[in-house]
């Protein structure tokens, strides 16, 4: 990747083959998590009850479903980045590391997709309250 000059080495991004992108996305998703999770905690605390009907009726509003969709994307992206660093720091055996990173991606993408589909199904009226 590098051309041998100091600029080329910077562009080559050293032995990690990536630069500050991962770090930056961790901060961006941290900021969006902050806003969306405060909204979520306040919303849950304000629901009079937490039974099925209350949750379904709440999520039928676009003003609840859309922030919750954004929250799912932001939170699962953030936890994927965070656990990736955790695995890279503590698992030094290459095979185990790759297996765990694959498992992490399966968990993050799988659970996030499950959440997104569930929110959309409720929001579009697919679940009778």
């Amino acid at each position: 990747m590098g051309t041998g000059t100091s600029l080329g080495r910077v562009r080559g991004l050293g032995s990690a083959h990536s630069g500050s992108h991962h770090w930056w996305l961790q901060r961006v998703t941290a900021a969006s998590n902050l806003v969306l999770l405060i909204w979520f905690v306040v919303s849950i605390a304000r629901l009079p009850v937490l039974d099925h009907q209350a949750v379904v009726l709440w999520l039928k509003s676009p003003l609840a479903a859309v922030p919750l969709l954004l929250l799912v994307i932001s939170v699962f992206w953030h936890l994927r980045l965070g656990l990736q660093v955790f695995i890279e720091d503590y698992v030094h055996e290459e095979g185990g590391k790759i297996a765990l990173l694959l498992l992490l991606n399966a968990y993050a993408i799988g659970a996030a997709t499950l959440c997104v589909f569930s929110i959309l199904k409720i929001a579009f009226g697919g679940v009778p309250a």
């Binding site: 099925h52 936890l79 965070g82 659970a111 569930s118 679940v127």
Partner: peptide, 19 residues
Amino acid sequence: TALAIGGGVIFAWWLTAAA
């Protein structure tokens, strides 16, 4: 780590069950 695994699983279970 606790939130990513514990919180994530409970949250996904809650939403999926509701749907």
